[in-house]
């Protein structure tokens, strides 16, 4: 159990998918203008990622095996696309407001490199099924965490006297950079 917990914590803090691995920047920048959107996006991504990590493990392990490994990326993309479609329908039905707020970024979870990256990293790290799930969930939680924190900062920055040329995405990128800098403090905590 400890080892699963370590995988989880490591994925959330030490090897944060956005701050340390610099993956998934597109929704990170795109859907972090408002806190509620960020929370929604985080929840959707967590759902997709956890499901994707599990099913991609099953596909990779039972369906593809070593001889069909060249199909890994392709089949993962298909599975993720399917899960995202499913999520989109669920969100549209259950929370039209959230659906509106997430806008284009919801279907774009498909092309979120974090979502494809984590199953591939799972394969690379030779994680077993549970490890894959925990790694996927940790990655997604880490994504949600930084995204929500980032959204909080961006909401506060709306009132700041940021120089005109740095307004909007520019200062957001700088903030993301400084956040990443801060997350380096965790380096070495869990090997």
């Amino acid at each position: 159990m400890t080892e699963y917990l370590l995988i989880l914590l490591s994925a959330v803090f030490v090897n944060n998918i956005v701050m340390v691995k610099i993956l998934g920047l597109c929704p990170f920048m795109g859907v972090s203008k408002k806190l509620e959107a960020a929370i929604g996006m985080g929840a959707a991504t967590t759902f997709v990622l956890t499901l994707a990590s599990g099913s991609s493990y099953l596909i990779n392990h039972y369906l593809l095996g070593p001889e069909l490994s060249y199909l890994t990326t392709l089949s993962f993309i298909v599975v993720i696309a399917g899960i995202v479609q499913f999520t989109e329908m669920v969100v549209q039905k259950t929370s039209p407001v959230l659906y509106q707020v997430l806008g284009i970024y919801l279907p774009l979870i498909t092309t979120n490199c974090a979502v494809l990256g984590i199953p591939l990293l799972n394969v690379q790290a030779k994680h077993n099924f549970m490890e894959s799930i925990f790694f996927g969930m940790g990655g997604a939680l880490g994504f949600t965490l930084v995204m929500v924190l980032f959204a909080g900062m961006r909401e506060r920055m709306e009132g700041a006297d940021v120089p005109a040329i740095f307004k909007g995405s520019a200062i957001a990128m700088i903030t993301a950079g400084l956040m990443s800098l801060s997350f380096m403090g965790f380096s070495g905590l869990i090997k």
Partner: peptide, 10 residues
Amino acid sequence: SALLVMAAIA
């Protein structure tokens, strides 16, 4: 087998 796998996923 590759085709079959992809078809199954689909």
